[in-house]
Design a protein around this nucleic acid. Structure first.
Length: 368
RNA sequence: GCGGAUAUGGUGAAGUGGUUAACACAUUGGAUUGUGGUUCCAACAUGCGUGGGUUCGAUUCCCACUAUCCGUC
């Protein structure tokens, strides 16, 4: 079956909403944060550890899995869930963002995008139909439309052409998508332009997808611009479908997104920061490599219930990171992901009790 | 004991008779938002073993001393 979104409660003072998403692999409350596992693994972590931190949906990636090991191999394995031994829901990104972010140089035409593999330089051609075909083979629960994610900033003229093309591609994605067990999300683009966000949202909604996401954020714009991009788009999205803000994962931005009516977030930040020794705490982000933690035998965050905080000290984790031991990367990854997941748990509770703004203010008061 | 060589920041190591003494590692900060896990940026020797001398000026030339290394007895 397709996923089903149910809205339970809307905050009285803001657009924040509490709901749930029913999937073939369980039901999950929203707002939700989704860990990213680009290459069919959340870097450094096992599926068991992902489950232990009460994660719901995880992400994987069309582009990366297409190049390696190849969609057919995943299909032969019995689909992504079996291949990676994860029995929770999986969302696959379409490859649109990767084409933009790492497969340069690229040549965008109406048919699709020609670019070079970042692995071996192979000439590749990705189209909406191809992306959907790959995602079908991967057998994820939620597939994303193949879109163009233009850099920031770009002229209104360019963005308009890009948005129109992304809408035509969205139609082709919908047309190519036949899998009744897989949901398909449309993506709203339009950069920082209010009129284009509106146009993109309205046209994408007309095509009728199982959920909608806001793309083209966190590509270098400042935070206020990003919040405006959300505002411009979200008001044209139907309230009975899930809304997904792509690539956003700073605690501050999650709160701002939730306030504006976003249900789903994903971000590489918690795991990437972890690999570089940075950890989220209630008081803000800290750099565990800092010399001041050499003899700090307290956990990363006293109030955290994660495996790392229950068992290990800053001094030890700092040593592991400085010594480039992967166990350190794992411990902080576990902590950072759990931190964001717990944040969304608390957000949901706050929305239920109509005190989201109060919660947000309290959180931001201490954070940073 | 004799002969020879070398002495540059935490480490390895460039370099020059004259403005800011390369670079790398380490260290210390910072960055990172639909992940190219090993990335990027920045700071870091007021001084070139010690003491004299030559020179307008010496880390660079000369002398002594000290230390280290090699050879030799």
């Amino acid at each position: 079956m397709k996923i089903e979104y149910t809205l339970f409660h809307k905050d009285k003072k803001t657009n924040a909403r509490y709901g749930e998403i029913k999937t073939n692999y369980g039901t999950y409350e929203t707002p939700i944060f989704m860990p990213v596992g680009t290459q069919a693994t959340v870097k450094t972590l096992s599926p068991e550890e992902i489950k232990q931190m009460h994660a719901g949906i995880i992400l994987s990636n069309t582009y990366h899995l297409w190049l390696r090991p190849g969609a057919d191999i995943v299909k032969k394995a019995g689909g992504l869930h079996k291949f990676i031994n994860y029995d929770g829901p999986i969302l696959t990104d379409s490859g649109g963002f990767q084409v933009f972010s790492l497969a340069k140089p690229k040549d965008i035409s109406e048919e699709g995008v020609e670019f070079k593999s970042h692995i071996n330089g192979d000439k590749l051609f990705l189209t909406p139909e191809k992306s959907i075909e790959i995602q079908n083979k991967l057998d994820s629960d939620i597939a994303m439309c193949f879109d163009e994610c233009p850099p920031y900033p770009v002229t209104h003229e360019y963005m308009q052409k890009s948005v129109e093309r992304t809408i035509r591609w969205a139609k082709r994605c919908k047309e190519a998508h036949k899998n009744s067990n897989q949901s398909l999300f449309g993506i709203v683009q339009g950069g920082e332009f209010a009129d284009l966000r509106k146009y993109s949202a309205e046209e994408t909604v007309k095509i009728d997808f199982d959920g909608y996401s806001i793309g083209g954020t966190s590509v270098g714009e400042d935070k206020n611009t990003m919040y405006k991009m959300i505002d411009y788009a979200v008001k044209y999205l139907p309230s009975n479908k899930a809304r997904y803000l792509m690539g956003v994962g700073e605690p501050t931005d999650i709160l701002e997104g939730v306030e504006r009516g976003i249900d789903m977030f994903d971000c590489v930040l918690p795991t990437r920061l972890a690999r570089h020794g940075h950890a989220f705490t209630r008081m803000g982000k800290i750099n565990l490599k800092n010399a001041k933690y050499k003899e700090d035998f307290s956990p990363i965050d006293n109030s955290c219930d994660c495996y790392a905080c229950q068992n290990y000290t800053k001094a030890y984790i700092r040593h592991l990171i400085v010594a480039k031991e992967t166990f350190g990367q794992r411990l902080i990854s576990i902590h950072n992901l759990r931190f964001l997941i717990k944040l969304t748990e608390e957000i949901r509770q706050a929305i239920k009790e109509d005190r989201f703004l109060e919660y947000k203010t309290n959180f931001l008061d201490k954070y940073r």
